[in-house]
Design a protein around this nucleic acid. Sequence first.
DNA 1: TGGACCCGTTAGGAATGCGTCAAGATCGGT
DNA 2: ACCGATCTTGACGCATTCCTAACGGGTCCA
Lengths: 228, 228
Amino acid sequence: MTTTRVLVVDDDAHILRAIRIHLTACGYAVRTAQTGRAALRAGAAEHPDLVLLDLGLPDIDGTAVIAELRSWSTMSIIVLSARTDGTDKINALDTGADDYLTKPFSMPELLARMRAAVRRSAAPTDRDVVVATIDFSIDLAAKKVLSRTGEQVHLTPTEWAILGILVRDRGALVSQRRLLSEIWGPAYRTETNYLRVYLAQLRRKLEPEPSRPRYLITESGMGYRFQG
Amino acid sequence: MTTTRVLVVDDDAHILRAIRIHLTACGYAVRTAQTGRAALRAGAAEHPDLVLLDLGLPDIDGTAVIAELRSWSTMSIIVLSARTDGTDKINALDTGADDYLTKPFSMPELLARMRAAVRRSAAPTDRDVVVATIDFSIDLAAKKVLSRTGEQVHLTPTEWAILGILVRDRGALVSQRRLLSEIWGPAYRTETNYLRVYLAQLRRKLEPEPSRPRYLITESGMGYRFQG
DNA sequence: TGGACCCGTTAGGAATGCGTCAAGATCGGT
DNA sequence: ACCGATCTTGACGCATTCCTAACGGGTCCA
């Protein structure tokens, strides 16, 4: 497995620095943010595996940050908070947090809870990664597409991002909002233009008859579907 | 969703009883065990969704119970323990526990952590919410309808909105007001025209005999019902 | 019998969404 | 600084979906 990427959110630069040093020493790739806005931006841009979130942020309420992240992502969220109030805990957990630690906490315990969170979310990720059709085959893990004649088809990063989501949920309809949120970030929810352009490119590269799609199906007004 | 089944393991009969009463009142289906052996037996026999596990059992060490369960199951495990020692926590979490609460804990917090645990493990499982009849099958998550011959039936967004509500409450009568409010907004409460049009379209696509509906039933003057 | 009401059915124009193309803008490497 | 690859952005014509309004067939009751 590749290194786990962690986004640490806290308004106190000292705590941020202490946690960063610890986690980096333990082999995590660490990003930091000091405000709710920065956290949301970083979450959308970097797609971390795990978020350590302090609830007492200067700009946005912590639970609002959780809700916003949860609206498009299932990344693990562990709340670190000085608030010992029980209702804060319950609110955070019910909004979508996976765990809640009260400051001050012990570093070994945080690390153990992080391992538990990563273990849970990593489990169902390894699917059988090769999808083969009559016209091409897709290897998600190796990021390789072969045409019927065995030639390699080159895809750009954005094309891979879209195809990856559609193929992972093959057969299911994927809403445009989800595609846009996961790839460009929640702020681009309405830019359906992008999807039209990239779906056309994918079809030109994969479909035997790009003008009459067989695999990359459009569901007007709803989203797209990979028909295996 | 069906009711969540919880296995509560504690050697103290009083605590067991208190937790059982609380959880039953909250709608959980509760099983109990007072020993490690009984817990393993119950876990294998009942396949609960969630285990609440006290570490201080008379016969087997608590972490051994966790390891044994984890060797064949991914059910959620929340440890409840009087031991405040940090290493116990870390051992339990690293052995496979999903969460760890130190006694005494507040009941609302336990319930919130249980909801979080269930939410996580249920998230990818709610695939295959398929409603199947002799004439067609409906997959709400994938937004896919297959006819008896296996062909895919195409539905428009509005058709999906109506069918989704009716199927989610299958068997129950859904008032026209509710359908109109949820799909077009409260201002359209009286536009029963819309429903007539879209119900006709759904019947044409789904019913073997559209003029004599078997699945999408009209209750004159009240609403519609999906007869599974 | 006739009217009031509710429902099913149909069809066509309006509104919205989609595919396509091409011209900048941006980025990374030489 | 240049070049190629990739990503944005806007405009246009076409396809799908939605809304609307009409008509016909039932049922209930005066």
